[in-house]
Design a binder for these strands. Sequence first.
DNA 1: CACTTGACCTGTCCGC
DNA 2: TGCGGACAGGTCAAGT
Length: 293
Amino acid sequence: MPELPEVETIRLGLEQLIIGQKIADLNIINSSSFHFISTNTTQLIGAKITDVVRRGKVLIINLDNDCAVAIHLKMTGQIIYIEKNSANASPGFAGGHPNDSLISKLPDRSTRVVINFDNGHKLYFNDQRKFGWMRLMLKHELSSMSLINKMGPEPLGEKFTQREFEKQLSKRSNTNIKAALLDQSVIAGVGNIYADESLWSARIHPLRLVKTLSKSELAKLRKSIVAVLLKSIASGGSTDKNYLNAKGEAGSYLEFANVFRREGLPCPRCQSPLIKIRVAGRGTHVCTVCQKP
DNA sequence: CACTTGACCTGTCCGC
DNA sequence: TGCGGACAGGTCAAGT
């Protein structure tokens, strides 16, 4: 379930851990978890990592040649970096690895791919449900990948203005607002957790049709999306079951969540019990007093 | 065309 | 205790 804040947290971690490192070899344990798009392993071996970027929920590791590794974690994917001999204090993890118990367990049965660096450090791609993927591809083909070229604006980017938000939503005017927020071509990176949290914050019921929302409601919603995403990044993302950052650490945002996975508990604003319904095929958390249908 | 639903997977939890 | 089934949700293909 990694959404924008979780992928961004991983990106921030990888940025300090793997830039400049040289890839020695690749161990593909589950073949459907790693795709070669107009490429092969020779383009990976010996390449150095130059930078790590993100587009929506997609993580992109750029190499010092014409290739990049694109990664989608879908629901249960993890990208975890482990240093050689990391049980001992090492330069990257003074005092030991933040999650020593994890190290002794990797690789485990959810490990799908391992990237080995020439210094002995490793990058694990774990994915319990095998929905996620890594793709070695040519950089110039990244922007034409259908997933990316259809993506809407980055909600934390300068182009995510009120005018742009309204324009994007007008593409889905006849559907409910929750389905629209989950549509990556409307906004990139919002998933189930942050759709629910943003709608609660803006006091909008998830089933409201987009075309019935007033300008002021849409303004409140846009601000709520930005605020919720920023707060989650500051908390290291949300760990529900599987999510861990690049160092193997959980995120704490769910401690601050107002509605997500809180059905039966009192609404933090009005104290009436939160309920769980199904919208756009997803479990959806709502306060029907604050968020009028 | 616009929108909704099912498939892809595996682990966990619930009821019997 | 064991077993079947529901559930978790991101994206794409198929269906309405």
